[in-house]
Nucleic acid binder design. Structure first.
Lengths: 228, 228
DNA sequence: CGGACTTTGAGAACGATTGCACAAGCGGGA
DNA sequence: TCCCGCTTGTGCAATCGTTCTCAAAGTCCG
């Protein structure tokens, strides 16, 4: 029943936004939301919300809107958030450290269950409730914890090597924070977050701002009105 | 001379990839690159590279490729990286702390020149070579350092408030790490990085993997061959 | 000097995504 | 019961982005 058809990538990328907006709405004991309200909360426009949700199925009621709890359940099922995902972080430097301590993951269905680093000096140290394991132990760790998702938080030079090892160990979804291009075989998902790239994109529009025009406005900026 | 025409957003988002690839190429004292090689280094396909670069101008030589140094200069000018940008980070928690210590920014044309936090207990503490300033001092800090770019690394509830203050202080480019939708007025650029959302997207494809198919493969994964 | 080879730049086809507009469906009140 | 107002779901058109293809333009070699 997990929605027969194919869901466009652009829609998938927005489902988490709706999910978060619905969580907030549910907290306020609201029974139903309209696409209009959901759109305002998620920072997109209403037509997009309706089309996106229609890919999941006809879960709304005309004249009324969407049942918050029901829609939450459908989206969380679609996103695979009905159970927690164990996650391993490779690289316990600045960023890896911060990610390991970040509380936001657990609340959203992801739990950091293992930390790995190549530096022998770091192996064995404790961070929060976890002990850093050696990179060579990756296959064992992944197998024991049933890990499918890995986070790369190493320097750029190590990223490809680490990705290869993750894949070999059986990880099939990778989130890469290292500023490097990483290749993975078919059947493995890869997403990247690159802070420097984001800043450089901002810099592009920042520089063009003076010449005139309305600058660069994303979906969020285009949302006509504040919520409430 | 900064390239008359409008450059598509998708192209702008890839320019930093080419920039990084060119930096690596220049380090190896290579004089020219073909679109094919640049594509492999950036993890995209060659046709896209050529089309993207053609938006900047006709900077290649048929039968030869692109002059590395020249193209580097053109792209860095286009991205506004010919000078350093001063940046302020708001929120010195886990993530803000890690970002403040991250060395990768300076090397890429961005320098963290100020840290700000709302928590009186944190104001006055030193992180690296910087002293944390109070949120109320934001306008002064922004004006004194000529800051145009701000990073939000606060909890979600504070994000909108902080964004408003950044805009009031004169910041016109914002990078938001808080898991919340933020609205900014026209003329202000906003980009967001949301770790939980990235993981949820991975989770979506991870969950769909078992039913069969080749899974979810991004541009990077589709790159046919490893470089070198 | 001419031909073979390489690589760019761009036109055109194609595909994905967005936004509009509106019919269809539902609830509530007379 | 019927009508009215509200909101969804979706067909359609327009926009945006990607990929294919190939002529044009250059280098290199004999």
């Amino acid at each position: 029943m997990p929605s027969a058809g194919r869901i466009p990538e652009a829609t998938v990328a927005r489902l988490p936004l709706y999910y978060r907006a619905l969580l907030e709405t549910a907290d306020q004991h609201v029974g139903t939301v309209s696409s209009d309200r959901l759109a305002a909360l998620a920072g997109v426009n209403a037509a997009k919300v309706r089309k996106d949700l229609s890919y999941l199925g006809s879960y709304g009621t005309r004249g009324v809107g969407y049942d918050v709890e029901f829609l939450l359940h459908q989206i969380s099922r679609e996103l695979g958030l009905t159970h927690d995902w164990p996650v391993v972080i490779v690289g316990v430097g600045n960023l890896g450290h911060a990610l390991a301590n970040y509380k936001g993951f657990g609340a959203r269905g992801f739990q950091i269950v293992a930390l790995v680093d190549a530096d022998p000096a770091k192996v064995g140290t404790r961070i929060g409730e976890l002990t850093v394991a050696a990179l060579d132990d990756l296959p064992k760790v992944v197998a024991e914890c049933g890990i499918a998702i890995g986070i790369i938080a190493t320097p750029a030079v190590a990223a490809q090597e680490v990705a290869d090892r993750l894949v070999d160990a059986g990880v099939t979804s990778i989130l890469n924070f290292a500023p490097a291009v990483v290749n993975v075989p078919p059947g493995v998902s890869l997403r990247k977050v690159d802070l420097a790239i984001e800043l450089q994109i901002l810099s592009f529009y920042q520089q063009r701002r003076v010449p005139g025009g309305d600058g660069h406005r994303g979906d969020v900026a285009r949302a006509k009105e504040r919520v409430r």
